[in-house]
Design a protein around this nucleic acid. Structure first.
Lengths: 210, 210
DNA sequence: TGTCCATTGCACACTGGTGTGCAGTGTACT
DNA sequence: AGTACACTGCACACCAGTGTGCAATGGACA
């Protein structure tokens, strides 16, 4: 009873509890990734825990999915804002964005499937802020004439970003082609010429650190 | 008992039966399009029929979905083979293909959602022949240097074709931009330069007859 | 040693879908 | 008139998942 407010260490007990919670979340991504209709039981079992315990951490299935989505949005927004701050050209920024987004997108690819049916509304709502940031970047590219203008920025950004996620969710996602394919493909969609797109992407790939 | 083999007219009875069957199939596309998890009851109600009647025509839900998929594959394959026979350049062929595929893809867009979970395997299997035709077309484009070669033909065709379906399944699908966006976007993904892509697509749009 | 508490393993009620069985009804065809 | 039969409207049984309740259990901690 030496701590009134926020706990500093609280070593074993709460830590093992948050560990369980995190493990459930991590495993849920894998399990739902393979089968979006997997139940709380499957998730629990995969996490080495009983179904009842999962409900101890997440009162409902929706809570679990929402927590997952919040995590994803937080991580992706962090990447995008950080990359955006570099001040590079829009196409170079996009290439770097996709390169660094890739592991995150691949990890949370299940949200693409979960976006429809039952949880669609909740997920869609949480994705709002990220969508705006993307649209801003594409708009900047259109204004500086590096991106095509055959579609309004808001739509074009969604289409290109959707393609990245679609590729992350496809057979391509495993294997080394995934990230490269996603980056080049999305750049082409944005109207960047092939040679330039390839140069930008391979520049990213060969330089390990941004 | 005047007919042994195939029946010539068999006027009212069987015709009204096949009409019911067709109406169920048509309506199922709409209902499942809005909610891929809709049940046999919802489909029946929407078709002005009782759930029990749906089971009279399709022994199981899988039968219904399979029939729907077979229909889609048949229609899409017909479009592709017909367009392929024109002998035009690969990029022009692709543009025409998308333009004529659009209503079909939009109609059967639900298969994109149904492709995963439960019926995925069945649908994937039926899609095989179409995939080959697409890959052949893209290969031809790569060999004649009108399509990019940053990805193998089999994969590139899937990505571009997936984008068309994704757009058909998005908010863009309604409204006049849908078909144009799908065509231009997929052409860009295939490595066709922006100006050429736009020219090809708008040529399609302004010329009603192929 | 005794208390706290995350976890367990069972119980249950509830929901919502699937697929089947069967008696009835109206209508097209003979 | 009589028959065949698509459709109806009800009845089931079955399954799978959700969410809850509650009495153990066992390890961490004071």
């Amino acid at each position: 009873m030496c701590n009134d407010g926020v706990v500093p260490t609280e070593s074993s007990r709460v830590r093992s509890m948050t560990e369980t919670r995190d493990r459930i979340l991590d495993v849920a991504l894998d399990v739902l990734g393979e089968n979006p209709d997997a139940g709380m039981g499957d998730i629990g079992t995969a996490a080495g825990v009983v179904r009842r315990t999962v409900y101890g951490h997440f009162p409902s299935r929706l809570d679990l999915v929402r927590t997952l989505t919040e995590r994803a949005v937080t991580e992706m927004t962090a990447v995008l804002t950080e990359v955006n701050a570099s001040g590079a050209e829009a196409d170079a920024t996009w290439a770097e964005f996709v390169a660094r987004l890739w592991p995150v997108a691949h990890r949370y690819r299940v949200l693409l499937a979960l976006r429809r049916g039952e949880y669609g509304e909740a997920i869609h709502g949480l994705l709002g802020p990220l969508d705006e940031l993307l649209a801003d970047l594409v708009k900047r590219g259109q204004d500086t004439d590096v991106f095509a203008q055959h579609l309004p920025a808001g739509i074009l950004s969604q289409v290109a970003y959707g393609a990245v996620f679609a590729i992350a969710d496809s057979d391509l996602s495993n294997g080394p082609l995934g990230a490269r394919a996603a980056a080049i493909t999305s750049l082409l969609m944005l109207g960047v010429p092939e040679t330039r797109a390839i140069a930008l992407v391979d520049d990213q790939v060969t330089r390990p650190g941004g």
